[in-house]
């Protein structure tokens, strides 16, 4: 291998960038192993923490001896005071509530709130959004790229214009519209606003521009309808671009905190993973960082795995459609 200063500097910068990007992930995974005390005091206990046994306060509160129990026990030890008996019983409870921080964090991740349900909701919402987006975007992109009709350029400039509208700007009217038709706290509220993805239309249109017209003409000559051309000819050629779009779409909606937070106000069963995480927050009255980080780790894992699997296709897709 030739040694080149330029290459070395380039790689050094890239490695530095990668470290900056990975640092929060490192902290997240590391915190998911640690106890509240280690996290809040910033104790230097390494990546896995000290794993010193902690007392699960919730478990203690749940098992707190009831008055009746104290009275019954008091009858057995008449020489002791009520307070003594209470403390003895409480110590017994505490003994059964000790845990290693890593178990406490991951166990509360799944028991404190129905995380599996949230993950399922995440899958339902992201998959529905993506499928509908494809059903809308493919024909639209095909028409904008390959068909000649009056106002095509204007329609395309509208698509470009819509790319410029930030969702937060239209969140309020969207919310009111959904509220008026009684759709808040439903799956529909989570899905409908995202079904038309102008980004998807734009991306697919750019890709279809590169598909030779001959392919389409051949299809037409064989008597295919326009729609069967879209689904049987264009769709298979567009798989790499679709995969790239899938990653954008799925990541954006799997991780979306803003919109679910607005439209799902109290229906726990509809929580998506990111707003589910909110349940572990209680402001100054005791946010549980350990379980929150455990939940975050659980939530991002499927995405990272999916990206690793589709990495090559993903990069292909981006270069195919975006760089032309």
């Amino acid at each position: 291998m030739n040694f080149s200063i330029g290459q070395t500097i380039k790689h050094a910068i890239l490695i530095l960038g990668a470290l900056i990007v990975i640092a929060p992930f490192y902290t997240m995974v590391s915190y998911s192993f640690k106890s509240q005390r280690e996290i809040e005091t910033g104790a230097d206990t390494g990546f896995f923490g000290s794993q010193e046994v902690i007392i699960d306060e919730f478990c203690v509160h749940r098992g707190q001896p009831e008055r009746e129990e104290v009275k019954d026990t008091l009858e057995l030890y008449p020489e002791k005071t009520e307070r003594d008996v209470y403390n003895i019983l409480l110590d017994e409870v505490k003994k059964n509530c000790t845990k290693k921080p890593v178990f406490f964090n991951y166990q509360s991740a799944f028991t404190f709130a129905p995380l599996l349900r949230y993950l399922l909701n995440g899958v339902i919402v992201t998959v529905s959004i993506f499928l509908i987006q494809v059903i809308v975007a493919l024909p639209a992109a095909y028409a904008l790229a390959k068909l000649r009709f009056w106002g095509r350029d204007f329609a395309f400039s509208l698509v470009l214009f819509c790319l410029l509208i930030p969702v937060h700007a239209i969140a309020l009217p969207l919310y009111i519209m959904l509220a008026k038709v009684g759709l808040t706290n439903t799956y529909a509220a989570l899905i409908i606003p995202w079904t038309i993805s102008v980004f998807g239309i734009f991306l697919m249109r750019q890709f279809f521009m590169t598909v030779p017209d001959d392919l389409i003409d051949a299809g037409r000559m064989d008597g295919m309808s326009e729609f069967s051309i879209i689904w049987k000819v264009m769709l298979p050629t567009a798989i790499p671009a679709l995969l790239a779009f899938a990653i954008f779409s799925v990541v954006a909606h799997w991780n979306d905190y803003f919109w679910p937070r607005v439209v799902i106000t109290g229906e726990r069963n509809l929580f998506t993973p990111p707003i589910g995480m909110r349940e572990y927050r209680a402001d100054s009255d005791g946010t549980f960082y350990g379980p929150i980080m455990a939940v975050s780790t659980v939530i991002v894992t499927p995405l990272i795995v999916a990206f690793m699997l589709a990495q090559k296709r993903f990069i292909e897709g981006i270069t195919l459609s975006g760089m032309k």
Partner: peptide, 26 residues
Amino acid sequence: KMRAAYENYEDGTNTILREAVANKLP
């Protein structure tokens, strides 16, 4: 029927105001 907990008092009031628009108050 328990609804999801509010993060804090501000969140509680915000949520109620939003639910009032959608007519889905607890």
